[in-house]
């Protein structure tokens, strides 16, 4: 029905969309930076793979366990580190991500070490991936347009004012962090069931950076921008195979240009419906 090349492209895009949407909520809406979300992807991927292969759990349940595991770890980590200011929080996430990768390399008996974890059944077809990505978008959209997401935006804009308006800054930051980790874990679990063979190097620091870069390119504070950003970042190199070694170079330059020229990214605080809406007309659904 669809050849394996296109299936691969669709699955990769969808998986990354889920991870980037998590990142978008964390960075774009709450203005917390994490260079460790690949670590949460790794946790989701390995947990889901182990559930599938070792415990023969059904696919959906395995992926769910992977996502929840990532969320629990984020909750524990966040309880310790969420109060750290700006760069200190960022470096603690980065350190965490690297710890996860090294730990998975080291625990050969469980994870297969550098060789990787093999024999994962192929379950993430392009249909599954697409359905998941759409579901992820709806969930993230609903979150952002609820009092929880509005609290995230308030924290992004001004922490002191947010607190003065009854927002428990620490609690909501942690919630945002856990949410992004659950999405990363979800993406990881799906990815494992597509690749059938995962290694720690898939979830290294450059992967975390790629998630952040995609979020920035798409536009901080826009979920549809994040989807667009992911499509650009994932699809362009597929269609310009020849230039694949310039891929990361181009992203680096693009990030600098975006920050210098259009700091709000491709979509910048706007969602797709906003583009077709004149100001002063009836507002869109949800209340943002």
């Amino acid at each position: 029905m669809i050849n394996s090349f296109y299936e691969g492209v669709i699955v990769t895009c969808c998986v990354n969309i889920i991870a980037v949407l998590g990142m978008s909520v964390l960075t774009g809406f709450t203005r917390l930076f994490s260079f460790g979300n690949a670590g949460f992807m790794a946790i989701g991927a390995y947990a889901a793979a182990i559930c599938s292969v070792h415990y023969h759990l059904p696919f959906a349940l395995s992926v769910l366990i992977g996502a929840v595991a990532a969320g629990i770890v984020a909750y524990l980590l966040g309880s310790l580190t969420i109060r750290l200011r700006g760069d200190y929080f960022l470096i603690s996430c980065l350190g965490f991500g690297e710890c996860v990768r090294v730990l998975f390399l080291y625990l050969r008996n469980i994870t297969g070490g550098a060789v990787g974890y093999t024999g994962i059944p192929f379950r993430t077809t392009w249909v599954v991936a697409l359905v998941c990505a759409i579901a992820a978008f709806i969930i993230a959209w609903n979150l952002i347009h609820s009092r929880f997401g509005q609290a995230f935006s308030a924290i992004r804009e001004n922490e002191v004012a947010a607190a003065a308006n009854g927002i428990d800054v620490v609690k909501y930051k942690k919630m945002s962090f856990v949410f992004s980790a659950i999405f990363a874990g979800w993406a990881g679990g799906l990815y494992a069931h597509y690749l059938q063979h995962i290694t720690p190097v898939l979830f290294n620091l450059p992967k975390s950076c790629e998630l952040v870069i995609t979020t920035v390119l798409g536009g901080l504070g826009s979920l549809s921008g994040s989807v667009l950003g992911t499509l650009v970042v994932q699809l362009l190199p597929e269609f310009f195979r020849k230039f694949s070694e310039y891929r990361m170079l181009a992203y680096g330059i693009a990030v600098v240009l975006v920050i210098l020229l259009r700091p709000s990214g491709l979509m910048g605080y706007k969602e797709f419906p906003d583009l077709f809406k004149k100001s002063g007309k009836k507002k869109s659904t949800g209340g943002a």
Partner: peptide, 23 residues
């Protein structure tokens, strides 16, 4: 711009240089 943008720009430069050297 918010201070955070400095850091993002630095991250972009870092990616650029690393891959430029590679090329």
């Amino acid at each position: 711009s918010p201070n955070m943008f400095l850091m993002i720009a630095a991250m972009g430069l870092s990616t650029t240089y690393q891959n430029l050297a590679n090329v």
